[in-house]
Amino acid sequence: MERLDPRARSDIYGLRINRAPAPWRVRSVPYASIMLASALPVLLIADTMPLTPSFGFLMLLAWRMVRPGLLPLWAGAPLGAFDDLVSGQPFGSAILLWSLAMIAIEAIEARFPWRGFWQDWFTASSMAVVYWLACLVVSGASLTPEMVTVAAPQALASVLLYPVIARLVAGLDRFRLSRARTID
């Protein structure tokens, strides 16, 4: 009977056993994806009025709902500051609104520890619409019915895009936790 070389055995099983995810991926993927999503509308279209929803806020909500314990409660403040700097909103608006959203999600999860897709979608959609309205109020523009009508597709897009963004976050989470490959 022929014995396997220990190095050959580690090649067979080494990629599956006793491998940890890369620490830089574990820590940086959620924050980098939220920051990239915040910058995405600015990179796509530069106009007087944003035509796309706040992808950064939706990504924050998705990370918080898909992986509940991953982002600390205070993460809304620095990520909101980055969004304020990139989006052109008055500085402090996203800091306040993102922090309040993180607190609200924490309160909802304490009250309803069981969760499902529909509850997450309803919660994220209602928060996205409230965030949209608050951004309109804070922006300093006069709120006329025409302005709300023109900006309403953002709110509708936020509601409809949440499941897609949650699916994207689940894929990013799988990438974040995938095992690092080592070369012997």
Rank of each mutant, 00 (worst) to 15 (best):
L161T: 04
W121Y: 07
V42N: 10
I45W: 09
L85H: 01
R9K: 11
F122V: 15
A141P: 00
L172T: 08
P72A: 00
L79M: 07
P50R: 15
I17K: 12
L61T: 05
A39D: 00
M35L: 15
L172F: 12
I12F: 10
G171A: 14
P163E: 01
S28N: 11
P163C: 01
G14L: 10
I103C: 10
L70E: 08
Y162C: 01
R7N: 13
G171E: 08
V164A: 14
S99V: 08
L168C: 07
L156N: 02
Q154I: 10
A75M: 05
S33P: 03
L15N: 14
A134G: 05
W118G: 07
D47L: 07
S99H: 01
L43E: 08
V138D: 09
L36W: 05
A141W: 01
V150A: 14
V164S: 02
V137F: 11
D120H: 04
Y162D: 00
L168H: 03
A157H: 02
L172D: 11
R67C: 09
L36A: 13
F112I: 10
L60Q: 03
P78W: 06
L40R: 04
P41C: 02
S54G: 12
R111I: 09
W98Y: 15
P41R: 00
R9D: 11
A180Y: 09
G80Q: 00
Y13R: 08
W63S: 02
V86K: 01
A94C: 11
T123Y: 02
L97I: 13
S87C: 02
L172A: 12
Y13F: 15
L70D: 09
W132I: 05
